Computed example of a mutant assay.
Amino acid sequence: MAPAARFRSVVLDCPDPLALARFYAQVVGGTPRQDDPDWVVLQVPDGPRLSFQRAPDLTPPQWPRSDRDAQQFHLDFDGGSTWEEMDAAQEKVLALGARVLDAEDREKKDFVVYADPAGHPFCLCRIEHH
């Protein structure tokens, strides 16, 4: 059966679309393109398109929560295959303005949860490369 649609992009609401697009460009690459003050697009090299939409009154998701105000989704990124690579990736995202939400049992879980500068959760995952 043919799909009903093709994937276009993940859209993140945020108070400052260009600032958040620049944050993610430093995390995953690409160059933000702003054709409208309320909308910025970041084409991730060899990856999806991330878009950022102005939402001046955004209330960031709370992590972890299980009630109706819980996070709706989060982004996972490959942080490397070793803990040294993960530590280097963490140093970079923290310098860019991310903050750690959960690093407990990282060796057991193989991921660390962060919040981007607008408060959206994302993970750096340790991925075994084959």
Rank of each mutant, 00 (worst) to 15 (best):
R65P: 02
G47H: 13
A5Q: 14
V100D: 11
M1V: 14
F52L: 04
C14M: 10
V11F: 07
V44T: 11
A21L: 11
A19G: 10
A5W: 13
L58S: 03
A21R: 10
W39C: 10
D13R: 12
R65T: 00
V113C: 08
D67A: 01
F52D: 10
A115Y: 07
Q26G: 13
A95N: 09
S51Q: 15
V11T: 14
D46P: 08
D105W: 12
A103T: 08
R22G: 11
A2P: 12
P121Y: 08
I127M: 05
H129Y: 04
P56E: 12
A19R: 14
W63K: 04
A98M: 03
P17H: 06
A95S: 12
D116N: 02
T59H: 04
L12W: 01
Q71C: 15
D67Y: 01
P61G: 04
R33D: 12
L50K: 05
D57N: 09
A2Y: 12
G80S: 02
T59C: 05
A55P: 09
G97P: 06
L101A: 03
L20T: 07
A95V: 09
T59S: 08
L12Y: 07
P61M: 07
Q71N: 14
S81E: 05
R22M: 13
F111A: 09
V10E: 08
P60C: 00
L58N: 08
A2D: 14
H130S: 14
A2W: 15
Y114P: 08
V40C: 02
Q90H: 05
H130A: 14
W39Q: 06
C123L: 11
S66W: 10
G29L: 06
F122I: 05
R8T: 14
K108V: 08
Q53S: 15
D35K: 15
R68W: 15
T31M: 13
P60L: 03
P61K: 03
V41A: 15
Q26W: 02
R65Y: 00
L50N: 03
Q90T: 14
G80M: 00
E85K: 01
D78M: 00
G29E: 06
P48R: 14
R54E: 07
K109F: 10
K108C: 08
H129T: 01
G80W: 00
P60Y: 01
P32T: 10
P45E: 04
P61D: 02
V28F: 11
G30M: 09
